[in-house]
Simulated scan of single mutants.
Amino acid sequence: MLSIGEFSKICGVSTKTLRYYAEIELINPDEINPENGYRYYSIKQLKKMLLISRLKSYHFSLDEIKDLLDAEEDQSEERLSMALARKSREIQEKASALEYTLKQMSHDMFHLQKGIPLMSYLDDIEVQLVETPPMNILSMRQMLSRDDYTAGYGKHFSRLYEKIAAEKLTLLGTPMTIYHSPDYNPAGNDTEFALPIKEAVQGTRDLPGGLCAKSVFKGSYSELTSVYARLRKWIEDERYEWVQAPYEVYVTDPHEAADPESLVTEVYFPVKKK
């Protein structure tokens, strides 16, 4: 048997961390002396502790690790393989986002060195006044939290695509998201996912056409806040007012984009003249 100190030293994990892991039942001491409360770990537990540390280094949360360790033995290897594949994709997406951020920082530093104000790029975002036609959309509305936005919209659009395939409906355009909440709330925002289709079936509605202030943005979705700021300023400067929920049209499928810089998104603000 190993004392908690010896176990801690071998595994490179503090005794405080080991006590916390025991509290959340991630890994418990093999034996606790009832007289003095000393904790002891068995040699065979080294393997489990090293696995926990390895999964932590792969950015698994403690809850995710606990779930994997609690799996039945005959399913654990399969679940672990699937979990590693999923986490690998998540890390790759984060790496791509960080690479994009570094490029953007280099671009900003170059402009600052040339005496160009950092936020001058807002003036370069083009705004057009366009008339949009009405369209029939297959849609679903959800209250989404900040974490939901971070996770992405894939699963919501997948449900719509599955209905189109099952009912053999005719797709007429690319995915779009309509934002109905009047302001941003981290706890939940009223968000509608939609696909333009030909047929009027259960789950479809008319999206009215009309006058819109429109911008086309090429780049990461995280930068769309700049487009929204530019559109709102343009609307105010040109004496228009916002009359309906703004929406985004995803011209580029994010799953087919080689990098965030190749994503193309159209942003529409329905407006009318004051």
Rank of each mutant, 00 (worst) to 15 (best):
K218E: 12
V264Y: 07
D123I: 02
D67Q: 13
L207S: 01
I4F: 02
P186H: 01
K9C: 02
I164V: 15
P196I: 11
E90K: 13
T170E: 12
K274V: 13
K168D: 07
G219M: 05
D190K: 12
I32E: 10
N36G: 11
E72H: 11
S181N: 04
A166R: 08
A229V: 10
F110P: 00
K233W: 15
F193K: 03
A71C: 10
E266H: 10
G37E: 01
G210Y: 00
G115V: 03
Y41A: 06
L195A: 11
E73Q: 09
R39K: 11
E73V: 09
P260A: 09
Y100K: 03
E241V: 11
E23Q: 14
H107I: 02
L231P: 00
R205W: 08
F157G: 10
Y247G: 11
L207Q: 13
W242N: 13
L18F: 01
V271M: 02
Y247C: 06
E223P: 00
E248H: 04
I125E: 06
E72C: 04
G12M: 07
S139R: 13
T17F: 00
P29V: 11
I197D: 13
L129R: 09
Q45H: 01
A187F: 11
W242S: 14
R146E: 11
Y21C: 02
A95L: 09
R141W: 05
V227C: 04
L50N: 12
S53F: 00
N185H: 08
R141G: 07
K16E: 10
E6S: 13
L118P: 01
I197H: 05
S88W: 06
R239V: 09
V13C: 03
L263Y: 08
A200Y: 07
V130A: 12
L263K: 01
Y121S: 06
M1Q: 02
I10T: 02
E236M: 13
N33M: 05
A83G: 03
Y38K: 12
P133D: 08
S3E: 09
E223D: 15
S57Q: 14
Y41F: 10
E31T: 03
A213V: 01
P175N: 01
E78I: 13
T191Y: 05
Y250T: 10
T15W: 00
A194R: 08
R159Q: 09
Q128F: 10
G209K: 07
S96A: 15
L263S: 06
D237R: 11
D67V: 05
K163C: 01
K47E: 15
I4C: 02
A245N: 07
G173T: 02
A71N: 07
M119G: 01
R141Y: 04
K163W: 03
D124Q: 14
G219I: 08
P260E: 09
I32G: 00
K233C: 13
Q92W: 00
Y41H: 05
S226K: 06
R239A: 12
S139W: 08
Y161M: 03
L80V: 00
V127T: 14
F7R: 04
A83W: 03
I235V: 15
Y58C: 14
E25G: 06
N185E: 12
Y179I: 01
L55F: 15
Y247H: 09
L68D: 02
G154L: 08
M109D: 08
F110K: 14
L51E: 12
K155S: 15
I27E: 10
A258E: 12
N28S: 15
E261H: 06
